[in-house]
Design a protein around this nucleic acid. Structure first.
Length: 225
DNA sequence: CCCTGATTCGC
DNA sequence: GCGAATCAGG
């Protein structure tokens, strides 16, 4: 493979978008990450991004420009609505891992669960709890694919429980393409992490989690070790 | 161990 | 110019 204009262009684009050399190499194909890095240096764009002020203060991952298709005749100055502006037209992730959403959901739920501090430690109403005043997980974000015990082969489930004891307990940022992305625990609490064991080639999860994540229409057998 | 980018240097 | 090997780091 050679560095055609097209390939160089893609390289530049991806590099400036923050992709890693290996990711770019994978995308281009036919080259290694070393080749990409070498090219990057030769092109003199090591700086990744040169513009902007000196301090890299705030955490602005990447803000996709919002396609303002709708023309608003009203000369509205600067609305600046309160942060969350869930427009009907979702920006659509379009990306790969849905994990990001899970992480956000985690943060949001954690915050939501913390806010309503209506707890009274001593006021014991001699009344059995009829309902749970606890913060209910707000709907909206899909729950992580936790195994719904009643639908999964008990043997596989048992294996999963066993495997999870040896999970690497990775954080979101530690996940790679070859670490199991199965979420474990309650995202609303601190007891939350990702399995992190080696994935089954081509799958997002380790073998154990693949077995519960991808259920065939019929029941399954096997499970050798 | 997995990964990252940076550098070197024979080709 | 190219990129494998190597280095330095997380």
């Amino acid at each position: 493979m050679s560095w055609t204009d097209e390939r160089v262009e893609l390289l530049k684009k991806m590099w400036n978008e923050g992709h890693s050399a290996s990711q770019i190499a994978k995308e281009l194909g036919g080259v290694t990450r070393n080749a990409v890095i070498g090219k990057v240096h030769r092109l003199g764009l090591s700086n990744r991004n040169a513009p902007e002020a000196e301090p890299k203060a705030d955490t602005k991952p990447e803000v996709k420009a919002e396609p303002k298709v709708i023309v608003d005749p009203t000369p509205t100055p600067a609305p600046t609505p309160p942060k969350a502006a869930p427009s009907a037209a979702a920006p659509k992730p379009a990306s790969e891992t849905p994990v990001v959403d899970l992480a956000q959901a985690k943060a949001e739920r954690a915050a939501a669960a913390k806010a309503p501090e209506v707890e009274d430690p001593e006021d014991a109403n001699d009344e059995p709890e009829v309902y749970t005043p606890r913060a209910i997980i707000p709907a909206g974000q899909p729950l992580p694919p936790q195994p719904s015990a009643n639908e999964i082969d008990p043997a596989a489930l048992a294996t999963v429980r066993e495997v999870e004891k040896t999970a690497r307990k990775l954080t979101l940022l530690e996940l790679t393409e070859r670490t199991c992305k199965w979420p474990i625990g309650d995202p609303a609490t601190e007891d939350f992490w990702f399995c992190g064991l080696p994935v089954k080639p081509g799958k997002p999860y380790c073998e154990a989690h693949v077995s519960v994540a991808f259920q065939p229409m019929s029941s399954r057998r096997d499970r050798k070790r």
